[in-house]
């Protein structure tokens, strides 16, 4: 059975690193894996979506509506946008941070109200203030690793395996902060 995880956020939030930590952890478990990334123009502060799929043999690198086992959302509005991709009974992990998109900044549209309530009404949602936890770990940019920590807890991959990948994926000078960030998320 192929496991399908979607990581959504705003360009610049570090979703790419999160997907690489996830991808490298699952190959060490012996799975076939595909990670589909977004580069180029869409990365410039726009909505970014990364798919990670693993199992015995993975064909398509993308995830369709109603298919994701887990959605890891780095921002509230992006969680809401990705909602239709979650499968029935899937798990939505959301960073409570809100970042206004340009149509809201220009006043053309409003940021939707009470997204958390709307999500909770229909889905299995875990809300995380990952920004505060990242700051607590020493750098607000570690939001991505906090969220990976939260997600790691709901997979069947051992804690040590995650730590191993983080050690090989993250630049040495940020390692301590990232390990702390992962632990804060994992032990939530």
């Amino acid at each position: 059975m192929t496991k399908k995880i979607m990581i959504v956020g705003v360009g610049g939030q570090g979703t790419l690193l999160a997907s690489r930590i996830l991808g490298n952890t699952v190959i060490n478990e012996g799975y076939d894996v595909k990670v589909s990334e977004v580069h180029g123009m869409s990365q410039r502060g726009g909505s970014v979506v990364t798919y990670v799929k693993y199992g015995d043999e993975v064909y398509s690198p993308i995830i369709d509506k109603g298919e994701a086992d887990i959605i890891l959302a780095f921002e509230m509005l992006e969680a809401y946008r990705a909602m239709p991709f979650l499968k029935k009974g899937g798990k939505l992990i959301v960073n409570t941070q809100e970042i206004d998109p340009m149509p809201v900044i220009t006043g053309a549209m409003d940021y939707p109200e009470n997204i958390a309530d709307k999500l909770k009404e229909k889905l299995d949602v875990t809300l995380v203030d990952a920004l505060s936890l990242a700051e607590k770990a020493g750098n607000f940019k570690a939001v991505n690793v906090v969220l990976i920590g939260v997600m790691a807890k709901s997979t069947d991959i051992a804690y040590e395996k995650w730590i191993e990948t983080i050690k090989t994926t993250v630049p040495p000078k940020f390692l301590d902060i990232n390990l702390e960030a992962f632990n804060l998320g994992y032990n939530l």
Partner: peptide
């Protein structure tokens, strides 16, 4: 597959 559709129009997030 069954999915939980949005019931309102939400702002796009174009690259900036």
């Amino acid at each position: 597959p069954e999915s939980c559709e949005l019931t309102e129009t939400i702002p796009a997030r174009p690259p900036v």
